[in-house]
């Protein structure tokens, strides 16, 4: 356990040092992170205002709050590992990772968290500024904010494990672009990034609840907005815990088979 902490610490240092060398690229990524939800925010706000002040129970101020919280939750839970894996396997950079006496996922988790820590000090003020500009309105109860912490952590773990597992499809086909693209389009809708799930047709809402998508983004957002009852919150946390178990099992199984394949057909 101590070793693992030391590894994470060392990886943080390396990744943060690396990221800080590319300030221009950091600024561009940051702009993308802020711009995408802001566009949806402006669109929905306009619709709400032209539709008599609200759409499906969401006022302009609600939309502002929704998309700004979404921006933060999405930033804290997203990963780019699926793109990284394709590159990694094509360039033969996976083999050195396999020869280290530690599971390769630790490096990826550490890299992911380090990048987020670098961006967060700029992202939070940006979100606050936008919240004031658009008059975002949300007032969660203290218990909801408290429950938001484990909900966010579980969301991160489930999303990371799922995407890492999907990324290992690169073991079977070195062109993972198609798989990635499909996943991202589905997740755009099912995790509530285009519109709050409440506003989407029932089949999509059901699909989002059955699949992990609702639990990896939408649930923590609802919780932080103060839109859930304590019962709904507990149910959500239980669903997240369930998905954590499932994604851990999937991750272990697929990794085991994938790495055997990789070692079988040519590293």
């Amino acid at each position: 356990m101590n070793t693992l902490l030391a590894v994470y610490h060392a990886n943080f240092r390396v990744t943060i040092a690396t990221q800080l060398q590319y300030r221009a690229s950091l600024a561009i990524w940051l702009l993308g992170t802020v711009l995408e939800p802001t566009i949806y925010l402006v669109v929905w706000r306009t619709i709400a205002q032209s539709g008599g002040g609200a759409v499906g129970g969401y006022s302009a101020a609600d939309f502002a709050a929704y998309f700004l919280i979404l921006m933060i939750v999405n930033h804290l839970t997203f990963s780019w590992i699926m793109w990284e894996y394709e590159y990694r396997i094509r360039q033969g950079q996976f083999s050195p990772l396999l020869l280290r006496p530690i599971h390769p996922i630790h490096k990826d988790i550490a890299d992911n968290i380090a990048y987020k820590l670098v961006i967060l000090p700029v992202l939070l003020p940006a979100a606050a500024l936008l919240a004031i500009t658009f008059g975002a309105d949300f007032n969660p109860a203290p218990w909801a904010l408290l429950a938001f912490v484990p909900a966010l952590l579980l969301a991160f773990l489930v999303r990371f494990l799922t995407e890492w597992t999907l990324a290992t499809s690169a073991f079977w086909t070195t062109r993972t672009g198609a798989v990635n693209q499909m996943y991202f389009v589905v997740s755009l809708f099912l995790s509530g990034q285009v519109a709050p799930l409440d506003l989407l047709p029932a089949p999509i809402r059901i699909a989002a609840a059955i699949l992990p998508f609702r639990w990896t983004v939408y649930f923590p957002v609802e919780l932080a907005l103060g839109r859930l009852t304590p019962q709904e919150t507990l149910l959500g946390l239980a669903a997240q815990a369930g998905w954590l178990v499932v994604s851990l099992l999937l991750f272990r199984t697929v990794w085991h088979i994938g790495v055997q394949r990789y070692s079988g057909v040519g590293a």
Binding site: T3, A6, V7, H9, A10, N11, R13, V14, A17, R100, P101, I102
Partner: peptide, 10 residues
């Protein structure tokens, strides 16, 4: 920095 990382990993 990479050496340091290896120190910890190994």
């Amino acid at each position: 920095d990479s050496f340091e990382l290896n120190r910890v990993i190994y």
